[in-house]
Amino acid sequence: MIATVATVVAGSIAAAVVLMGVSYVWAPGGAAGFGIPDVPVEDRAFRSWSRVKGNRDIGTGLLLLVVLVGGPPQLLGAAMIVAAVMPACDAVTVARAGGPPAAAYGVHAATAAVMVAVGLVLLGA
């Protein structure tokens, strides 16, 4: 039962990551919500980096969805734990840029923690 809940949470995270990635590629000005303060959303270089982040998110989310559909729960668990490195690094990036703690810890670090917890449950499935 708990593995089923963990699988649903993993799928939801993967789908959300794809959708966030699409939003960063489609409308990079909205990426200011990432948590880095004083982002010049009209700046061409920023918009390019926003698209890079979006592409990374799309690829990561799709990879997790492929593993969810085609692999055993243990493989999905391992993939979730490894993929948690990205939001953990995002938390550090936002914190070091002087971004709001709510974004650094409440969004990015919390996402990483949930991904690791879900991964550990699936590893034990």
Rank of each mutant, 00 (worst) to 15 (best):
M20S: 12
R51F: 03
T60R: 11
R47S: 06
F34M: 01
V8N: 14
K53N: 14
A109C: 08
P73R: 00
L62Y: 08
G119H: 03
A95W: 14
A97M: 13
L19M: 12
T7E: 13
G11I: 12
P40D: 11
A6H: 10
N55F: 13
A113N: 07
E42K: 04
G30K: 03
P100K: 15
D43K: 03
G30E: 04
S12T: 15
V52F: 13
L75M: 01
G30I: 02
A109E: 05
V114T: 07
A104N: 10
L64G: 06
A88P: 01
I81M: 05
G30R: 07
L62A: 12
R44D: 09
V92F: 11
V118I: 03
P37A: 05
Y24T: 04
N55G: 14
A31S: 10
V82P: 02
G33Y: 00
G54D: 06
S23K: 08
P28A: 01
M1G: 15
P101K: 15
W26M: 04
W49S: 04
V94M: 10
N55T: 14
G124A: 14
A32E: 10
K53F: 13
G54E: 09
Y24M: 06
A103P: 02
V67R: 00
G11Y: 12
R96C: 10
A78R: 05
G99V: 08
A110C: 13
A117I: 05
V116A: 06
L123W: 04
L76R: 03
V66L: 08
P73K: 02
L63Q: 03
D90E: 07
W49D: 03
V82R: 01
V25E: 01
P100D: 15
I81V: 07
N55Q: 11
V67P: 03
D43H: 01
A27P: 04
L64F: 08
G124L: 11
A32T: 07
M86R: 11
G21C: 00
A91I: 06
T93V: 14
D90F: 07
A109K: 05
V94W: 09
V116Q: 04
G11S: 12
N55W: 10
A15I: 12
V39E: 02
C89V: 15
V5S: 13
A88E: 04
V107W: 10
A6G: 11
F34A: 00
A27W: 02
T93P: 05
F46S: 01
Q74P: 02
L68Q: 02
G99H: 08
D57R: 07
V107K: 12
P87Y: 13
G61L: 13
G70L: 02
G29R: 02
L62W: 09
C89S: 14
L65P: 06
A3R: 15
A10I: 10
G106A: 06
G33H: 03
R56L: 14
W49I: 08
V92Q: 09
L75N: 02
G54Q: 10
G70R: 04
L64E: 05
G11T: 12
D38P: 01
A83S: 14
F46R: 00
